[in-house]
Structures are given as structure tokens and as C-alpha cells.
């Protein structure tokens, strides 16, 4: 997101926040315990907050990927039928036939981890352990040339991975199409 736009948005939000009431009016709902929050909160932010303890290497990921992912996405992440390619496309985003993959398009490695962990494999969403998720993520990033063959990912190293299209996103400039005035 464009930095200036983001700043303006955040400033506007800060003003709104202050206006929110400071009391519990209806006394409905029960307090969420720390344990309930820990169990249910699976979100991972780009700065790595929310990432669990665990680790995975490219070597382990090569093995796990073939078992867990390769049947649909292909043994080298090339994609098959409706299952998208996970590899390739770097340098194509400006062209006539852009290839948007994890490697060419996704701006954060944490997003790859979060999506695999919550939504993959397609038929058994959310079934991977943190270690398996770190490993599979490492292998997919390796296939894209983003991490080396010896890489190990964990809650500290994953957020430091710089994705090729990290700076490829801008904010919403709409309305962007100057149409003729209505009725003319």
C-alpha cells in the first residue's frame, strides 16, 4: 500500500477509535480465556507475529511436499488443471501474459505460511503441523529461487525472507476512470 495513503488512513482511524465507548453496555458475551485465544488464533502477520514455534528445512520440505502437495500442484510446483502453479512467472507481471504465482506475485512469505497452514491441502484444510508448514513453505520458496538449498525456516527467519514482488503493490486510486458527465 502506498505509504502516504496508509498514513492518512491510519490517522483517520485513530480519530474514530477515540470516539468508541469505554463501557460494556449489555453485559452479554463471556470473557475469552488466554487458552481459548491461543487455541483459536491462527493468524500470522507480515512481521511474524502469530507464528508458532517450529522449524522446517528445504530438505524436509522436499519430502513433505511430495506427500502432501505434489499430487495436485505437480512434483515441481508447475500446477495441474485447476490447481495453480506455485513456481515461475518472475519478470512477467508487466507483460501481456502475466503469470501470478507465490514466487512472482505474493509479497510476503508469511502469507504463504499462513495460507498453507489454514487452508491446505485442499481436501484436508488446516491439517499440517507447524513443522510441516515451515518445511513445505521452505521447499516452495526454494523452487522459486527465493531461499537457498540449505535454508531453514522458523518464526524468526520466515518474516525476514524478502519476496521478489514485495514492493509491487499500491493503494486504491479509484475512482480512476474519468467518464463523460451523466446525460451528455
Amino acid at each position: 500500500m502506498n505509504k502516504a495513503r496508509l498514513f492518512i488512513l491510519c490517522a483517520a482511524i485513530a480519530v474514530v477509535t477515540v470516539a468508541v465507548a469505554q463501557t460494556q453496555s449489555y453485559k452479554l458475551g463471556r470473557p475469552a480465556t488466554a487458552e481459548e485465544i491461543r487455541e483459536r488464533d491462527i493468524s500470522v502477520a507480515p512481521d511474524g507475529s502469530g507464528l508458532p514455534v517450529g522449524h522446517g528445512t528445504v530438505t524436509q520440505g522436499r519430502h513433505d511436499y511430495q506427500t502432501l502437495c505434489g499430487n495436485c500442484h505437480g512434483d515441481r510446483g508447475q500446477g495441474m488443471l485447476q490447481y495453480p502453479a506455485l513456481v515461475g512467472g518472475q519478470g512477467t507481471l508487466r507483460g501481456k501474459n502475466p503469470v501470478k504465482t507465490v514466487g512472482s506475485y505474493w509479497p510476503y512469505a508469511t502469507t504463504v505460511w499462513d495460507f498453507i497452514h489454514r487452508t491446505m491441502p485442499y481436501a484436508r484444510p488446516g491439517s499440517l503441523t507447524p513443522d510441516e508448514t515451515y518445511a513445505v513453505t521452505a521447499f516452495i520458496l526454494y523452487l522459486n529461487g527465493i531461499v537457498g538449498e540449505k535454508a531453514e525456516l522458523n518464526k524468526t527467519t520466515l518474516p525476514r525472507v524478502k519476496m521478489p514482488n514485495r514492493d509491487g503493490f499500491v493503494g486504491d486510486p479509484r475512482p480512476d476512470v474519468a467518464a463523460k458527465k451523466a446525460g451528455k
Partner: peptide, 26 residues
């Protein structure tokens, strides 16, 4: 901060001719 989930980065973003993608085009 926005958490940059897959559906606000890899999908539902709008790739423009200059190679940049518009994000949070809600």
C-alpha cells in the same frame, strides 16, 4: 496492521499494465 492474507495479496488484487498491483480495492 493489515495481515496480508492470501485473499488480499495473491488474489482480489488488480494487476495494472505497469506491473504494479492495486491492493485493498474494496
Amino acid at each position: 496492521q493489515p495481515y496480508m492474507t492470501s485473499y488480499e495479496t495473491g488474489h482480489y488484487t488488480d494487476l495494472m499494465p505497469d506491473g504494479k498491483a492495486r491492493q485493498f480495492t474494496f
